[in-house]
Simulated assay, not measured.
Amino acid sequence: MQTVLIVIHLMVVLALVGVVLLQRSEGGGLGIGGGSGFMTARGAANTLTRATAMLATAFFATSLALSLLARYGDQPTDIFDRMPTTQQGAPSGEGGVLDQLGGEDTPPAQAPEPAQPQVPSGQ
């Protein structure tokens, strides 16, 4: 289901990019050339505007569907479900999640005393 929705989403994205590029901009855009018929200035604007609106709606719908599938599809996992717990239901360890990560258990070293200036000996 998700793969089919991704393929549809990609096709909508490519079509949306194509339709936006075909629209006439202030400088003429890719709608180069004149003539009459199906793609006249007024008819093209109406057709391309409607196509852009429909493709944008389809884009938002497929994006929303993909995000809902990602959230509620299969089995949503929570990081706290994978943590080992004690009998009371609290995470094991005394200090919390950061203490379970490991590391050195040695106490912090004391700061060294500042060095004393040496007095030159008289000769």
Rank of each mutant, 00 (worst) to 15 (best):
Q2K: 13
Q2A: 07
Q2T: 14
L5Y: 10
I6A: 11
I8R: 09
H9V: 02
H9P: 02
H9Q: 13
H9Y: 13
L10D: 13
M11E: 08
M11L: 14
V13D: 04
V13C: 04
V13E: 05
A15G: 06
L16Q: 11
L16M: 06
L16E: 02
L16A: 13
V17D: 00
V17S: 06
G18C: 05
V20A: 08
L21P: 04
L21M: 09
L22R: 15
L22G: 07
Q23D: 07
E26V: 06
G27P: 01
G27R: 09
G28M: 12
I32V: 11
G35T: 07
S36Q: 07
S36C: 01
G37F: 14
G37H: 13
M39A: 15
M39S: 09
M39I: 12
T40V: 00
A41F: 06
R42G: 03
R42Q: 12
G43V: 05
A44F: 15
A45G: 07
N46D: 12
T47H: 11
R50F: 10
A51G: 06
A51E: 04
T52V: 01
A53I: 11
A53M: 11
L55F: 10
T57P: 00
T57Q: 02
T57G: 14
A58G: 15
F59E: 11
F59N: 13
F59V: 05
F60C: 12
T62I: 02
T62S: 12
S63C: 07
L64N: 06
L64S: 06
L64Y: 11
A65W: 03
L66T: 06
S67Q: 08
A70L: 09
A70F: 13
R71F: 07
R71H: 11
Y72T: 01
G73R: 01
D74H: 03
Q75D: 03
Q75I: 03
P76I: 06
P76T: 08
T77D: 08
T77A: 11
D78R: 14
D78F: 14
I79N: 05
F80D: 14
M83N: 04
T85V: 15
Q87W: 08
A90I: 02
A90G: 02
P91G: 01
P91E: 01
S92Q: 11
G93A: 03
E94D: 13
E94L: 10
E94S: 08
G95K: 10
G95R: 14
L98C: 03
L98A: 15
D99K: 08
D99I: 01
D99N: 07
Q100L: 15
L101P: 00
L101Q: 10
G102V: 00
G102E: 03
G103L: 01
G103W: 13
G103V: 15
E104F: 10
D105M: 03
T106L: 14
P107I: 00
A109F: 02
P112R: 01
A115N: 00
A115K: 08
A115D: 12
Q116T: 10
P117Q: 06
Q118D: 09
Q118L: 13
Q118C: 06
V119N: 07
S121A: 14
G122S: 08
Q123G: 09
